[in-house]
Amino acid sequence: MPYNTVLFDLDGTLTDPFEGITRSIQHALEKMGSEVPDANALRWCIGPPLWESFAVLLGTEERSELDRAVAFYRERYTVTGLFENTLISGIDTLLEGLAADGRQLFVATSKPHAYAGKIVDHFGLGGYFKKVYGSELDGTRSAKAELIAYLMREEGIGAETCAMIGDRKHDLIGARANRVDSVGVLWGYGSREELEGEGPVAIVADAPELGRVLGV
């Protein structure tokens, strides 16, 4: 499908952040005096905004408590967790092909853009993207629908020329809210059932298959 503009989620789509995110959540829960689950029991936390995950983990909607937990998370994440991360196989080749084909590429992540940009640059991907869009540190625009709408306004992008690539339902829901086509990827943290439930135009198993769907 010849989309002129392609938006990529970061965590679970471009990179696998399992170690850095789960260890940082465990650090925060310990600091909060809460039960600390095994890392594998925290896999579902990769993708949604942090405030949503901590609301479930701590059993509270109290904003001040959630803010404390996020602060503890960042205490570890900004120093160590940020780079406890691996690049998804084949992603660099895919991005190179899309860029060479003249596509306009953006990162659209619930992660704060201050962190997301560092991760993208750490893996040498910065040159492929026009800009990295993420949330603000206070959680503003951490919801994908709001983030994608903001990105499209800022860049003057029409929905009919755009696709969103992501591994969780939040990515696909955000795309649909903005009448943007979406493609679900199975190498991240959402199941096929989760992705199918949101009506993407395709679900792919690896980067080469994604390239075929996008027409490169």
Results as ranks from 00 to 15, higher is better:
Phe129Trp: 04
Gly197Val: 00
Tyr189Asn: 00
Gly215Ala: 10
Ser191Asn: 09
Ala207Phe: 05
Thr86Gly: 11
Gly126His: 07
Gly156His: 01
Met152Trp: 01
Gly190Lys: 02
Leu172Val: 04
Trp187Met: 11
Gly166Glu: 12
Gly156Leu: 13
Val56Glu: 12
Phe123Leu: 11
Gly139Gln: 07
Ala41Ile: 09
His122Gly: 06
Tyr115Phe: 12
Arg141Cys: 05
Val201Asp: 02
Met32Pro: 07
Gly127Glu: 04
Ala114Glu: 07
Asp181Phe: 01
Gly117Thr: 10
Leu210Ser: 09
His113Trp: 12
Glu160Met: 06
Gly158Glu: 09
Pro49Cys: 07
Leu147Val: 06
Leu58Gln: 11
Thr60Gln: 10
Ala99Val: 03
Tyr77Gln: 01
Gly156Ser: 00
Leu137Asp: 14
Glu146Asn: 11
Arg76Ser: 10
Gly174Pro: 07
Pro48Tyr: 15
Arg179Pro: 02
Asp9Ser: 05
Glu30Phe: 09
Arg103Lys: 14
Leu66Cys: 04
Gly190Trp: 00
Ile203Gly: 07
Thr93Gln: 05
Ser53Leu: 12
Thr140Ser: 15
Ala205Leu: 04
Val185Ala: 12
Glu61His: 07
Tyr115Glu: 10
Asp181Gln: 04
Gly90Thr: 14
Leu58Tyr: 14
Gly102Leu: 08
Ile203Thr: 02
Asp171Pro: 12
Lys111Phe: 10
Arg63Phe: 14
Glu19Cys: 15
Leu95Asp: 07
Arg179His: 15
Tyr150Pro: 11
Thr15Met: 03
